[in-house]
Design a binder for these strands. Structure first.
Lengths: 195, 195
DNA sequence: GTCTATAATCAGATAGAC
DNA sequence: GTCTATCTGATTATAGAC
């Protein structure tokens, strides 16, 4: 099963991305060398450059891919037609999606400062679009009287911070099931938006 | 005013810590070399080792100092005698204290993975103690019927994540004053704990 | 107390053999 | 497609001059 050399096309590209994801999340971009990534994959450092032009591109592609997938998944998510139904959909979606990808989530906001300015701007635009998805729901609910919010922008940031925070403590097989976590946070969000 | 050499005892120690704080927050521990810190202070790299045994100690002392100060400041904070008054005190204190020290706060949880295991355990114990301060307030309020919480531990984590999140967007001189931010978040926390 | 010089190691990235 | 070898420069930390 273990192949050392001469392994033809295989799937080295994706395996490099997987290794980088894992190592960047564990040790941080700056602390991970191309040699460490190569060792994790089982190739020599030079071979990585067949698949990525440089280390920065590796980081950017991970973050850009994550944000693109996140936005696409939210677009594809079934959401009700009332603000309250949409808010519930967002709350549950956000927790579920983030819990399932702790490494990508961690990197996506821990490694922002290691992006080149150009790459940073792209990731920031993605993030901003995602925040606006929630902000639009809150604005709609506020206008039709379903929500009573002290400040829409602040509640947007408060909710996202609160929900993303689940990733800092949630462990698979822990005290609470994912379903239970979703329900409890949805109750908290409901309380936050209702006068 | 600019002294290059022969500057006697001066206050080089604290200046090294200040420079490290600033650079670690901006670029991350792994990306900052001892030479960069030395350049920021205005000395040569070798001179740093008169004040710190190594780079790891520099990081640990910053984080340990921050957490110790945070806990001491909370102890010294005037807090009412009811759970609701204590919760308001905690909410306002947390926002205020964290807003004032964005760099230390950032480092304190971005650089956890760069601590040696022994140092990590010490910082984790501090953090845990701080979380328990809030958890104890919530438990007391729950028991005496002032709060109706779906899960005390979760609400603890939710509130802390939400409040710490202020640091990601708050800018001095921005749209909202500190007082206003404090009040809005206190309203949100109130809603979260009241049935 | 600071500087310069140095040791030993490691970094990102490329060239050419196979 | 991967390896080995290599270039160039940076890394932490120490030794010894001043």
């Amino acid at each position: 099963m273990a192949r050392k050399t001469g392994s033809h096309s295989d799937i080295t590209g994706p395996r490099i991305r997987d290794a980088a994801l894992k190592l960047f999340a564990q040790q941080g971009y700056a602390a991970v060398s191309m040699r460490k990534i190569a060792a994790e994959v089982g190739v020599q450092a030079g071979a990585l450059y067949l698949y990525t032009p440089d280390k920065q591109s590796l980081l950017f592609e991970l973050m850009d891919g994550h944000m693109t997938d996140l936005l696409a998944a939210w677009e594809a998510e079934p959401k009700g037609d009332t603000p309250i139904a949409q808010l519930e959909a967002f709350t549950r979606f956000h927790i579920r999606y983030h819990i399932d990808r702790p490494e990508a989530v961690f990197i996506a906001y821990m490694e922002l400062r290691n992006l080149t300015p150009k790459n940073f701007a792209i990731i920031e635009a993605h993030r901003r679009r995602y925040e606006e998805a929630l902000e639009n729901i809150l604005n709609a609910g506020q206008e039709e009287g379903a929500f009573r919010l002290p400040d829409t922008r602040l509640v947007t940031m408060a909710v996202i911070a609160m929900l993303t925070g689940v990733n800092t403590w949630y462990r698979e097989g822990g005290r609470l099931s994912r379903q239970r976590v979703e329900r409890i946070y949805w109750r908290l969000v409901q309380r936050m938006v209702k006068g």
